[in-house]
Simulated assay, not measured.
Amino acid sequence: MTPHLHFDFTVNKDNNTIHVEREFAGDLETVWDCWTRPELLDQWWAPKPYRTRTKSMDFREGGTWFYAMISPENVTHWCRADYQAIDLHKSFSGLDAFCDEMGQINTEFPRAQWNNRFNPGAGGTKVNITIQYKTLADVEKIISMGFKEGFTMALENLDRYLEERFRLWRGAKTSNTARVCTYLNFDGNTEEAFQFYRSVFRTEFGGKGIQRFGDIPAETDHPPVADAIKKMILHIELPITGNHVLMATDAPKEMGFTLTQGNNMHISIEPESREEAKRIFDELSAGGVIEMPLEDMFFGSYFGSFTDRFGINWFVNYQTKP
């Protein structure tokens, strides 16, 4: 866990509940997606060395998430979560249970009511989790099974996933000279597009050249990059005409993207100073919709993104650690 992120785990034996309060270094929408989209849950939900594999998910009131926790020896433990109430980007609740491969509940283990609330804040998103059991004996059984340790590890997996996810916002800039770029997202064909642009403008790739998701250094405490995206483009730059630079990344669903026409292009402003970054962000975003508040990011940028009141997408990025 990143040291400055808030974490609190308490057990209330009077009302048979476990309460977890946890902060994550990500914007509200991204953290919400990580808790509600199966391809993202599979990246972090299981404590290491286990892994999660979703069989089916229907995230709606009355729907079910049916998934497996798989040990290093490939022993499968089936689980299900039955969703009860959902308030988009604010909260959701439901019942969890161990079950068999057909989804039949295993009554030998306690079933619990989960209530999860999401709150944006300075520097991240706070998730408040209340887990209600029927009896104190149920609480004690879950705790004795190592729930606190396992859930803590899973939440740390999410920290690491978010770190890799937001690595995409970092360019290859090596100085704080002001510049304006156009940042593009593609559905897996960034390389094809940029080879085409390169042939038209007769220029060469800048920065660190072609960087792929598979180039992300393997670290024992980070989730591995999915094989399906290793050859996709993590970052690429191409100077075109008039000293303008095109920058881009592929936008795979495994990294939390939902790519649609209209949200795949941003004007990226890189001011010379922190003060100018704040002024531009505050004035340009007035009357618009802020996607990510302007904040210090762990990857070394003072960064924010928004859609202005005319529907144009912007990044403001002051590189504090060039």
Rank of each mutant, 00 (worst) to 15 (best):
F147R: 07
G209H: 09
R80C: 08
R198I: 04
L168P: 04
L88S: 12
Q195K: 14
F147H: 09
T220C: 00
Q113D: 15
A178P: 02
N189Y: 13
S199Q: 12
E108D: 15
L95V: 07
R111L: 08
I86S: 12
S175Q: 08
I142F: 01
D159W: 02
F151R: 01
E163C: 03
Q104H: 14
A154F: 14
Q104M: 08
P110I: 11
D187Y: 03
V225F: 06
R80L: 12
F151K: 02
D87H: 12
A97M: 02
E192V: 10
G123S: 06
K208Q: 10
E163M: 10
E156M: 05
C79R: 01
S175T: 15
D96M: 09
E149W: 00
E156H: 08
T107Q: 11
G124R: 02
F98E: 09
R165N: 12
A178M: 13
C181W: 01
V139F: 01
P217T: 07
L184I: 13
G146P: 05
N106T: 04
G214R: 07
G214T: 02
A218E: 13
F98I: 00
Q132T: 15
H222F: 14
F196G: 05
A137H: 10
G206R: 04
P223D: 05
E149V: 05
I210T: 10
K126G: 00
E163N: 07
F118R: 01
K134P: 00
G124Q: 02
R167W: 12
N189E: 14
N128M: 11
G94H: 06
C79Q: 09
S91P: 01
L136W: 06
K126C: 02
G103S: 11
G124E: 02
I216E: 05
S93P: 01
Y161A: 07
E163V: 04
R165W: 08
Q113I: 05
G206A: 13
A137N: 13
Y161M: 14
R198L: 05
A85F: 04
D221N: 13
V127H: 02
Y183K: 05
R80T: 10
D82N: 14
F205D: 05
V139R: 08
L88D: 15
K141E: 11
I86W: 12
F196T: 04
S93H: 03
T125P: 01
N106K: 11
V127W: 01
K208F: 03
N189M: 07
M153D: 12
D138F: 03
N116K: 01
T174G: 05
Y161G: 10
